[in-house]
C-alpha cells in the first residue's frame, strides 16, 4: 500500500509557545497564504527542484541527484540560509520527507519530555492526507495515545476536511491575520471568508484551542475594532483562550520590513479591547528588556 509521506521543514522538540506545556512541533512545508509579514517565508513554497540554489551554497551541501531532485546534506550544511535567500519560490531545499512511521518514531523518542504535539507550518492542513494518517496512527499507538494534539492553522481548510480532522485533535489554534476581507487580502493575498467559517465551525465543535491576533500597528484592522469584530468577540465564551502576538521584524523580508513593530502600548490597548468584550483569558507577549551589562 502506498502510504502518504510529508514534506517537513523542521521539527522542534521543545516549544513553550505552541500550546499548553512542552510541545513537539512539526512545521510542515508549504502554505496557501502569502502573508507579507511572514517571519519564515521560506516555508511557503515547495521546492520545484530547479536547482538554482545549488551553486550558491558555500558548503557544497546541495546537489542534484540522478533523478533530478535537489539533495541537501545536513552534515555539510552550516545553516547560513543563503539557499533560502536566493530561492525565488519562497521554498527551501532543506526539507525532509517523513513517512507516518518515521514521524511517529520521532514523537516516541521524545515522549518523556512532551505534553503533546502541535502541527504547524507553513500550513499543516495543506498536507491533510498525511496528517490524517499520522494522527490516526498516533492515537492508536499505546505509547503516544495520551499526548494532546493541536493544529496551528490559518483557517483556510474547508468544512468537510475539518470534519475529518477535528475528531483526531484536541484543538485548533486559529490565526486571525486581519478582520475585513480587503485588509486580509492586502496582507495575505487571499480573502478570509473561509477563515471566518472555520472560526464558527471550531467554536461550534468546541475545538477552538486558541484564537490568535497578530497585531501590526497601522496595518491590521483590530484597533480600534470594527463593529462586527466586537460582535464576534462578545459572542465568545469568556474563557476562550486568546493570544495577542506582536509583529516584530525578525525574519521578515520585503515591504513588511518597513512596517512598524508592535510596542507594549499597542499590545495593552488591544488587550483592553478584549477585556472590555468580556474575555478573561488573554495572553500577551512577554516583555523582554534589552540586555545591558557592563561587559562587552
Amino acid at each position: 500500500m502506498n502510504s502518504p509521506s510529508a514534506i517537513i521543514n523542521k521539527i522542534l522538540t521543545f516549544s513553550a509557545v505552541d500550546g499548553p506545556g512542552n510541545r513537539l512541533v512539526v512545521f510542515f512545508q508549504g502554505c496557501n497564504l502569502a502573508c507579507l509579514n511572514c517571519h519564515n517565508p521560506y516555508t511557503m513554497g515547495r521546492c520545484n527542484d530547479c536547482g538554482d540554489c545549488i551553486p550558491h551554497c558555500p558548503q557544497q551541501a546541495l546537489s542534484m541527484d540522478d533523478t533530478g531532485t535537489v539533495r541537501w546534506d545536513a552534515d555539510l550544511c552550516s545553516q547560513c540560509d543563503t539557499c533560502l535567500s536566493v530561492c525565488t519560490f519562497s521554498a527551501s531545499p532543506k526539507t525532509l520527507r517523513y513517512s507516518v512511521s518515521e514521524l511517529l518514531d520521532v514523537v516516541q523518542d521524545n515522549t518523556p519530555f512532551i505534553s503533546g504535539i502541535t502541527l504547524s507550518g507553513g500550513e499543516a492542513t495543506t498536507q491533510l492526507p498525511f496528517i490524517l494518517a499520522f494522527l490516526t496512527a498516533l492515537r492508536t499507538n499505546p505509547a503516544t495515545a495520551a499526548l494532546s494534539c493541536l493544529v496551528d492553522s490559518n483557517g483556510l481548510l474547508g468544512k468537510t476536511a475539518w470534519q475529518q480532522l477535528l475528531p483526531l485533535v484536541d484543538g485548533v489554534m486559529l490565526d486571525i491575520k486581519a478582520w475585513h476581507t480587503d485588509q486580509h487580502k492586502a496582507i495575505t493575498g487571499s480573502h478570509n471568508h473561509r477563515v471566518k467559517a472555520s472560526l464558527d465551525q471550531l467554536i461550534r465543535s468546541k475545538k477552538l484551542a486558541e484564537l490568535r491576533f497578530l497585531l501590526i500597528p497601522s496595518v491590521t484592522d483590530f484597533d480600534p475594532p470594527p463593529d462586527d469584530l466586537l460582535l464576534m468577540l462578545r459572542g465568545l465564551s469568556p474563557e476562550t483562550p486568546i493570544r495577542i502576538n506582536g509583529f516584530q521584524h525578525h525574519g521578515v523580508v520585503g515591504a513588511a520590513a518597513f512596517w512598524p513593530p508592535a510596542q507594549s502600548d499597542d499590545i495593552s490597548r488591544f488587550q483592553q479591547v478584549l477585556h472590555s468584550a468580556g474575555l478573561l483569558n488573554v495572553k500577551i507577549p512577554v516583555h523582554t528588556e534589552k540586555m545591558s551589562l557592563p561587559f562587552r
Binding site: 521543545f14 516549544s15 513553550a16 509557545v17 499548553p20 506545556g21 512542552n22 510541545r23 521524545n110 518523556p112 519530555f113 512532551i114 505534553s115 495572553k283 512577554v286 523582554t288
Partner: peptide
C-alpha cells in the same frame, strides 16, 4: 538555559524537568 517565554508556560518547564529526570 531557556528563553524567557517559558515563564508564561511553567508547565513546559515541568515537563522538561520530568523528562530529564525520567531519562
Amino acid at each position: 538555559q531557556l528563553d524567557q517565554t517559558v515563564v508564561d508556560n511553567p508547565e513546559s518547564v515541568f515537563q522538561l524537568c520530568k523528562g530529564a529526570l525520567q531519562i
